[in-house]
Design a protein around this nucleic acid. Structure first.
Lengths: 346, 346
DNA sequence: TTGTAGGCGTTATCAA
DNA sequence: TTGATAACGCCTACAA
């Protein structure tokens, strides 16, 4: 039912050789315009469709690459994926997107499963532990590139935003608008192999926070560095609430990433603390959460499109020429100032 | 570089026939355990990987289907896509996800481009006009199913939520908590071929709004039905603002979909109108926006997972047996009550 | 239990 | 300009 009309069928119907049909269907020069048109018409009528499989077998490849993305409602990767698609298309490659849900193992499993998929390389997005993913890639023998700033140890060329520099910009902005009692909220490190505990980007953003304060001559108060549950739907942020109860001096909150902000803002709303007048709030990523919340969030925008483009270029490069170096490729962020830090004066 | 070791290579290295290697790699019974293990070891060492293309050519298909999803930051489709992946996997099918950005034509183009992709059917998500998409499917000769409630005219089996019944539930909820001056906010119909103007689901939701009010004996006030820019990042909703200026009686807002709520809530926050005490707000979809905003949004949850599962089943069915009927397949929504309509009493 | 051979649908080479 | 034919790599009758 699915695929039946072949070159042979068309050639028979047209009373010509199979090769002529092949040439007529492609854009080969060695065919008279007359027969080409005639054959194309017949092929059309017969409903001929070339077999992707046969073509790939003959040509030795599909010219397709895969992008493996985390499967959840937080679709920040879409900008990156779109850039991958455009870049790959320009090079004649198809992009297959594979959303993968779940923890550690699932990612490696997904890559192993790629052996049944006509793909020549893979871009993995957001990898807690690159080692196991690398092993999976080696097992099925395809090159990979990571868009990832989680892993401390890297085994792929790894694209990421410049977390340290970007976070510095955000905190410096808070300092510039006169804030000094700045809370740093990060997700709770809940156990030995927590995906957060070892996150490279969290380390970098916290380091930036500390360095900026020191540089500004502000004493670092460890009590202002708090951990909370990672749950964008939480009704509030109890840890921040406790802190506010104990310390009336807090005048800003820097969320390790935008997703922590909704709960933070709800906590502040519940307590009738005015944002940004009493307390400024900022985040990192500039993902959808940043613009949906009230007030909208000041944050550091990651250049996802550029990151996706570069990832694709590096992957295509490893497909053809010399594989790129396994190192971090960092891209600068852009400070986006929105209502959550914009006082009425400015 | 990419693909070199073949069955022949392995057979030579192992000093056996090519068929034996094939059997050893698969799970054929007709091979002695000893040789099977030996061959597998050798294959492993040589880095043998079966050719997806050759296998597909031989078997006459890839056992893969495509899901085409809208490429924007609003990833409500992920739940559906995930269900597709799981359902397809259970039937031995791979799922290829293709994010497509942009208007009308882009969708049909994307499907046309699928002729170079090893895929046997397509699930299209969110289709403004099914006709052109249908044509594209026919052109490349693959069956399709739509997860879609936009098109008024349908050319695919079309999965959707029960918009009318679901919207009734939401509005009835507002009436039950004592609201009677309920605003209906819908996106602006900005021109002839606006994607909103003809949206089936908008029509259904508005019809439900009207019917519930009538049934409750509430006079329909056309001034309470307003159109606004579709922009989840907008600083406010000026049309609602104007209305509030003119009419102090408004006590609820029903947004045609959740994405309209952030701007509505910002407008209300700017005007210090308390939600939900003064004004209740509700939406439709239960997508990410509903839980990120403050207060969190009462809404009708679409059963995306079930919809994705059904779509896949219907598609697989058209691949094998008789194609399913081209009609709407509607699934009931679930009323989710959250803080935006929950007064302190309840 | 193992080997041989034919064919899946294309494309490219070589003759005609 | 066209036609026959040989791969591409795998699977599976069929034969040994």
């Amino acid at each position: 039912m699915t695929q039946r009309v072949t070159l042979t069928d068309v050639s028979r119907a047209a009373g010509v050789g199979i090769a002529t049909v092949s040439r007529a269907m492609g854009d080969h020069p060695d065919v008279s315009k007359a027969t080409r048109d005639r054959i194309r018409t017949i092929a059309q009528e017969l409903g001929y469709r070339p077999s992707v499989a046969a073509r790939a077998l003959r040509r030795g490849g599909f010219h397709a690459i895969s992008v493996i993305v985390p499967d959840n409602q937080w679709a920040w990767w879409e900008l990156a994926a779109h850039a991958c698609i455009e870049t790959a298309a320009a090079a004649g490659y198809q992009v297959l997107v594979h959303p993968v849900r779940g923890a550690e193992g699932a990612l490696a499993d997904a890559i192993t499963g790629l052996s049944n998929v006509p793909t020549e390389g893979v871009i993995v997005v957001s990898v807690p532990d690159q080692k196991s993913v690398r092993d999976a890639c080696d097992r099925i023998g395809i090159p990979g590139v990571a868009i990832d700033d989680s892993s401390v140890d890297i085994y792929f060329p790894s694209i990421s935003a410049a977390n340290y520099a970007g976070a510095r910009e955000v905190v410096e902005h808070l300092v510039e608008i006169g804030r000094s009692r700045i809370v740093f909220v990060r997700p709770r490190f809940s156990g030995g192999d927590s995906i957060w505990g070892n996150s490279f980007y969290l380390q970098e953003r916290e380091r930036a926070y500390r360095d900026v304060l020191v540089a500004a001559g502000i004493l670092i108060d460890e009590k202002l560095i708090i951990e909370t549950e990672y749950d964008e739907a939480a009704p509030g942020c109890p840890e921040l609430g406790d802190l506010l109860d104990r310390d009336g001096s807090v005048d800003a909150v820097f969320c390790a990433f935008d997703q922590l902000a909704p709960a933070v803002l709800r906590e502040l709303a519940t307590r009738d603390r005015r944002v940004p007048d009493e307390i400024s709030v900022a985040g990192f990523d500039d993902e959808r959460a940043a613009i949906l919340v009230t007030p909208q969030l000041t944050t550091a925008r990651q250049p996802y499109a550029e990151m996706g483009r570069t990832a694709t270029e590096l992957l295509l490069q490893s497909l053809s020429e010399t594989p790129p170096a396994i190192r971090r490729y960092e891209f600068p962020t852009q400070l986006i100032v929105r209502a959550s830090t914009r006082t009425q004066l400015s």
